[in-house]
């Protein structure tokens, strides 16, 4: 959250929980962002993201959204959104902040010959909790006068991309690609979409905890793969290149709702009590008494 504050980016989280459930959660987790209550799913419905696969009489699940995140700029315009099919997956805070900040990034210092593309690959977090994405971030420094290709590529060329090996338990999602520039070839007059300058490609990755039952007592996960690219100038293309990477990061679990009874837990979020109320209110069995 400090990174968000420093960047001047606000964070809001909307759910179908009651305000007092959010208050208990905020206290239990020392939350510093804003939790918003949408108990009748009015906001969720107004966004058109109500999960309609859940029938209205299925309590307490009815009212859930298809979960996702929107990133808006200072004018309130949506600049990016992230929705995954699987509710077990949510974008990591780094991914959302990177989207909010747009093309600004700290380009790593890379030693390189000035006439060739150089690449740095990093992972934007030191832990990979189950179901929360981190990103493999590949930064290409493309020399003046050269460019890289984006998908779809002309025949025989290689697009700039991050490819993962078949890492057990590691999932990858839609890559976040930078904007392209149009390039008109002097020969054919064809216009291609290319990348030039500093090019940052981000591949969201997550783990499903399968591998936690296997190696290293489950305390670490390894993510390996390669970055591929092919640089061209106006006249010719260089040979395709690739660079392997491997990151070993701590596994871990995200902060989950605490369903425990509260006794002996300091502070408690009274999860079971709130859960019962979720069911009662939506099933119409709520006595109306508030605590």
């Amino acid at each position: 959250m400090d990174a968000y504050r420093e960047a001047g980016v606000r964070l809001y989280a909307v759910s179908y929980d009651e305000p007092d459930a959010l208050a208990d959660y905020a206290e239990a987790h020392s939350t510093t962002f804003t939790l918003l209550s949408d108990p009748d799913s009015e906001v969720i419905a107004s966004f058109g993201i109500l999960n309609t696969l859940i029938p209205p009489d299925d309590h307490p699940w009815y009212g859930l959204p298809f979960p996702g995140s929107y990133v808006i700029d200072a004018d309130g315009i949506i600049v990016a959104k992230f929705f995954e099919h699987n509710f077990a997956i949510r974008p990591g805070p780094e991914q959302l902040l990177a989207a909010a900040l747009g093309t600004e990034f700290d380009a790593p210092d890379i030693e390189r010959p000035p006439d060739r593309v150089s690449v740095d690959v990093a992972i934007d977090g030191d832990r990979l909790p189950m179901g929360v994405t981190r990103q493999i971030v590949a930064t290409f420094r493309v020399p003046e006068g050269q460019h890289l290709y984006s998908e779809p590529v002309p025949d025989g060329l290689v697009a700039a991309a991050i490819e993962l090996d078949d890492n057990d338990g590691i999932l990858s999602y839609e890559p976040v690609m930078p904007p392209t520039s149009p390039l008109t070839l002097s020969g054919s007059g064809d216009t291609l979409a290319v990348y030039d300058g500093d090019v940052v490609v981000r591949l969201p990755v997550a783990q499903n905890a399968r591998n936690m039952q296997k190696d290293d007592d489950g305390r670490f996960v390894t993510i390996s793969g390669q970055v591929r690219w092919q640089a061209c100038d106006d006249v010719e293309c260089f040979l395709p290149e690739s660079m392997p990477f491997s990151f070993r990061v701590e596994a871990g679990f995200p902060a989950l709702g605490d369903m425990g009874p509260g006794v002996g837990r300091v502070p408690a979020m009274n999860g079971a009590q709130h859960f019962q109320r979720l069911i009662d209110r939506r099933a119409g069995t709520d006595s109306g008494a508030s605590e």
Partner: peptide, 20 residues
Amino acid sequence: LHADRNGQPAVVVFYRSAVW
């Protein structure tokens, strides 16, 4: 939300529940 963010960019997350 738009008034509260006071001209700042923001991330708006729709998630399942803080309870379960």
